[in-house]
Design a protein around this nucleic acid. Structure first.
Lengths: 223, 223
DNA sequence: ACCTGAACACCGTTCAAGT
DNA sequence: ACCTGAACACCGTTCAAGT
């Protein structure tokens, strides 16, 4: 019997023309993540989206972790590094950092993947690092400081991406307010930044501080 | 039949004295994580360690996520906030930040949990924030800036904890080196900091920059 | 080479039955 | 109130069989 609606099921055996590739898998995974989130991304759901049996995926990837690596590298193309070509260093860093954080706020489950993944298998990730490095070099940064500075920036960005997914009320002490009076007061005193999200205020503050502090360090090293 | 070695299996029905509590569960989970890591922590393994059926756990926690929340709050007691009582602000922040990062380097799977968890259910976490807040107040920080500054610091710390779990060789471009010459050069130029780990160099650089930048911002606000 | 379909060893969670 | 034991609906992954 063939399913009543939709197309007939493919029979076993090698099909006449290949139906899968790493690219179609990556694309389907991204679409699935956009519509159903990361909990919605399973090898089953991915296979279903591609109209294929789950076991077929293993002809093209070694594991689900492999799929996440493919997705990660593709997501990296969404990060805006254009500023490093034309803009002054500080402006370029700011543009880059906000863009990087915004992208990964939508993809926090990739952060544990990327943070530990060797760049050698991730060309788009390398392309981003290359562009950023050129920007730092153009601004006259001492070579040995560039990679540590990029890592520090990236660490701040990843942590901030997690923070950006937290509910606005995360710091309300609730019942325990009386036991922690100073923190409760500090939470209440946070400036009412109109409609700006608290996570954005913190990110802006930290980014300004990092930029200022890094710049001071470079000036010291070059003097 | 009773198992040949070890104690006999408990029969069904309410036992004479309670064998579980949130505290024993938390303790067992932490021991399990220390010995087998986070992949080794399953509801089954946890039950086995406590000599109990997996379903028994659900009399004390609502889900595995609940267990992670209990673990997270307990781990928070390992963070050193003692500096904020006696030391100058800058030294206290440094002590706190390194300690916080070191603790969560061993517990990165908790980061997505804590980053989104309302503090109202996490007394130890609140205790840490209270101590830090007092240190900032003592140093004369303007009240509305304290919470954003703590969040920024924490974001940098969490991101750096992930970075600290990465292999030392993560930035070697491998085959693709030729296509990304500037980044490859920058990686090669990283100072040889004797036996200091690259992650520690980056964390130290970023922490110094953040401290300097935050301090400058405060000075500006108070002027 | 690359697909299907059946199977496997897990997972977290639910719930009736028992004391 | 709080435990056991059986069951359920999933998970990722393996592998023989098919073309």
């Amino acid at each position: 019997m063939v399913s009543a609606t939709g197309s007939a099921r493919r029979s076993a055996g090698r099909p006449l023309n290949r139906v899968l590739s790493q690219e179609t898998i990556t694309r389907a995974a991204l679409t699935l993540i956009e519509s159903r989130g990361y909990e919605g991304l399973t090898m089953s759901s991915l296979a279903r989206a591609l109209k294929v049996a789950p076991s077929s995926l293993y002809n093209h990837v070694e594991s689900k972790g492999d799929v996440l690596i493919l997705v990660q590298d593709h997501v990296m193309t969404q990060v805006d590094v254009s500023g490093f070509e034309s803009e002054p260093w500080e402006h370029a860093v700011r543009l880059f950092a906000w863009s990087y954080r915004d992208v990964f706020t939508r993809h926090t489950p990739l952060i544990p993947v990327i943070a530990v993944l060797p760049v050698s298998g991730a060309p788009q990730t390398l392309a981003v690092y290359e562009a950023v490095t050129r920007g730092f070099q153009k601004a006259g940064w001492p070579e040995p400081l560039i990679v540590p500075a990029i890592i520090a920036l990236e660490s701040f960005i990843f942590g901030s991406a997690f923070d950006a997914t937290a509910p606005e009320s995360i710091f309300e002490s609730g019942q325990l307010a009386g036991q922690y009076p100073q923190f409760t007061a500090a939470v209440a005193a946070r400036k009412d930044h109109a409609d700006q999200r608290q996570a954005d205020v913190a990110f802006g503050l930290g980014l300004d501080a990092l930029i200022l502090g890094l710049r001071a360090r470079v000036a010291g090293d070059l003097r």
